[in-house]
Design a protein around this nucleic acid. Sequence first.
DNA 1: GAATGGCCCGGCTGC
DNA 2: CGGGCCATTC
Length: 797
Amino acid sequence: MLSRDGDPPEAGLTPAPAEGLNGPQAEAAAHVDGPMVVFAGAGSGKTRVITYRIANLLAACRVPPYRILAVTFTNKAAGEMKRRLERICGPELVRDLWVGTFHATCARLLRRHHEAAGLGKNFIVYDDDDQRAVMSRVFKELKIDDKRHPMRLVMGRIHREKQDGLLAADFTPGNPTEEVVARCFSEYERRLADANAVDFDDLLIRVLRIVEDERSAAGEELRKKFLHVLVDEFQDVNQVQYRLVRGLSRRSTNLFVVGDDDQSIYRWRGADVRIVRNFRRDHPGARIVKLEENYRSTSSVVTAALGVIRPATDREPKELWTNNPPGEPVAVVACATERDEAAFVAERVRELVDQGVSPADVAIFYRVHAQSRVLEEVLRSERLPFQVIGGVRFFERAEVKDLVSYLRVITNPRSDVDLLRIINVPSRKIGDTTVEKLAGLAAELKVPLFEALEPLVRSDRVGPQPKKALARLHALLSDLMTAADTAGPRDLAERVLDETGYARMLEAEGTDEAEGRLLNLRELLGSIEEYERETLAAAEVPTLAGYLEKVALVAVTDELKDAPKVAMMTVHAAKGLEFSHVFLTGMEEDMFPFRSMDPARSGDVEEERRLAYVAITRARARLWIFHAERRMVFGATKYGMPSRFLADLPKEVVTQQKTETMRSSQGRFIDRDGWGAKRPEASQGAPRLSWSHPQARTGGGLERPRLAAPSSERTPGERFIERDDDAPRAASLRRPAPVDVPAPRGLGPGSQVEHPSFGMGVVLEVDGSPDPTATVKFSGWSTKRIKVRFLEVVHQR
DNA sequence: GAATGGCCCGGCTGC
DNA sequence: CGGGCCATTC
């Protein structure tokens, strides 16, 4: 259960056993040898099982924490699991556990083994945006016509290859289009390598390649490192992730996975349900446990969920049940428009809040982000506090990315896309022409753009004005790089804002928009500060690289704050969460199940069905499901009939309702029953377009002031940054071990030291030899014996 | 070299 | 409907 801390059990519901676990749960937590798969139905307490299993491994089996790896689906889930474990086992043991997402875990392992992966130490992680920027440079250089070969298709293809663990060298083109893909693929790879950067897929593939390399010493270390590997949400792993955990657990054979094939909703990004279904086949002798009792929801909700999932084909046989009382029926609400829908939602939320329900116990789900806008507008006008998860994400905002790019250039000057991003922001009179000349020279010299700056200034290829501008930029960045050696991440960020003139540029603008951007930057500084605090609290050294890594890997759900606000998110983002009151909007054919315009990407109705199941099972006590007669989709009015999934809801647990608007307009497109309605024929057309309701108006007076005063943009609804308890423990990057400095005298037990590969550690003992060796306990690693001269002393005892 | 306005095209879910 | 790209203009 990933609910917020301290959630009280709903009135009338049986809480999960307070102490100990029920039969199957206990079995899953206790049998600690060999492979094991747990089929855990929604709300059956799987997080609890994993948590207790780890506690058991630590306390009863005395497994060293740094030899346990637990892979979670989000950073937030990792943080919550750690917090729960701390309460059971105490912070000492928990600190050294490896708990994190696939990506965060791989990033951390890759810091240690960057050499085996052919990466520089301070490699950075490129997000989608960066990947696109790189690829558009590739297209330019290879002179590929974006019309004939749309970039997103090329990138999509490469992405799919990489999800199967394949790189450019493994790709054999079979047709002219693939020919183009192949060329882009290798050029893209080359550019990332030159930039000392990896993308999300690389993060996993690089580690996988090391793990699967029989001859590599690093591979051997990784294969031996973990005595226990546990994976949550196993139904959503892809082939690369599966091979990874197989490799990491091959020696120990202690691979423990928990999943629910009914909740597999990420096939579109490479997840493969067959992996969990075939687990037994792939692991002969694997123990199987099924958790089928739902502790979370009322029986009405469970019954509704079962109705939706039962028609699904090809499921692992299992039967979810609950002892909980029926509670309130599920309300299915017919609405006229999306605005009508939003108004009804807001009204109900208002009632709940007035009755004393915390807004934090309420969530609004939708299939696609685009649906959130109207809901936001109405909730804002009702002064209901809310937070939108995902959508235009904080770290994707231009100003935030700008500052992050500055910081990345400073840690890793080889990153061309970052330099290009900020080369003329704020305006320095370095335009396209100059940039192209710089790129040309860099290509000739075979150096990164940054290193071509000085040569270009010395050359006579550019005029005196650009020369001056380029020289100034070079001096500015060099200064900041020097400053990075001593200043902490937060101070450095502040200096960047100040010395680059970025802050001044925004202040000078004086618009509300600029004001908002400044506010976001301040928030970014706040997040760096928080990172510093958390890292120090964990007795580690905050580094810019550590922060940047964290930034790159925040997941949407990590953004959910513990705040008394209604949470609004896509159903995908809702996975793993639970709320006492849930509003599920947009349950119409073509919307949910979603149907893409592009027949090539026509969705998978089975997956949509599972998605609906996930949505329903998030609700503990009350669930409302909405469908609207018509809805504005991409600027055009679309008429939708109720989703087929509504017809699968058992009638006995459902009440049907209509909004006020629907009642007054006699629900003209919905038959009396509410479902099985026909899509209105075009011939019925004319009157419905002229039909007008004050709320149905588009364009008049209800527009949201998009760039309006930032304060009103942020409250009561706000988009914000993550608060993540799982700070990565990256080694210091800009401080090489002081090889020629004599070992500090008096370095005794208890001293805090830092090592470039292993990160922070505590000295247990030091021998008295002329070139002393220290025994050091590193967080996340076993105790190591290391020459003192390779250690940097952080705190001397 | 920068700023502005028009136009086209995509149009989901996300680490 | 909205973002990104291009052409035009200062």
